[in-house]
Amino acid sequence: MTTYTLNSLLPARSNGLAEIAFSGVSKSYGNKAAKSSQKVLQHVDLSVQRGEFVSLIGPSGCGKSTMLKLVAGLTSPTSGQICIDGMTPANAREIVSYIFQDATLLPWRTVEQNVGLRLELEHTTRERRQEKVAALLELVGLSHAAKSYPRQLSGGMKMRVSIARAMSTKPRVLLMDEPFAALDEISRDHFNEEILRLQQEQGWTALFVTHSVAEAVFLSTRVLIMAPHPGRIAHDIPINLPYPRTEATRQLAAFEDYITTISKTLRGVQSQ
């Protein structure tokens, strides 16, 4: 059932500075005629302000990845509307970057060629590209590996290349689908601090999918707990931890409290 209110029709206006706005978004996969369609998202309303870091957490099948794909314009909603800085997702691709779970590097390209891929696709001149790629590699600490091929890199280094590539187009919105899931815990903590440092410098808005409660709490201004069957946002929990967030943040009592609360809520959602 879809109800049209003024709010749901005019999300950008109603939310002022909203960078990402979902209004009454539903998404089903499958054949309508065969009545086998599966509802992945049902009536999702969401407004993410500029500069926010929002994590999506929840059991598998609750539509977390679908949310990211909708923002990226890789799939369209069955009903409802999505606005990225007042634009449709298809038109907003230029300001959106996507980091996938595996680094998705092209194995036949060197590190610098991989980082420069998006610039190359948008026909940036060779000189300009080399300049930008060098700066990006510097940013993620991989200048020494510029000429290496992906097979020569560790998992963490591959992810750095992937991050550098995502930054190459100066995104305003960064979508991350469990980017650090394959890394060991120490690297993951390290990456978490670094991604926050990058956000501080560049000021993009983040939508971050994860299965780790600790990671979500550490990174986010808000954690959205999602529930399955059909996928929806069940809880919206603001995280009021001080910045800058460092190793010391993980020692705070409030940090532990958030983890306990969210873990409990998550178990409640899962057992429904």
């Binding site: 890789l74 691709r93 230029e94 970057s97 996938f100 595996d102 998705t104 092209l106 891929l117």
Partner: peptide, 10 residues
Amino acid sequence: NMVNLFLMQN
């Protein structure tokens, strides 16, 4: 996802 990467760049 590699195809998606290219699609994201139009």
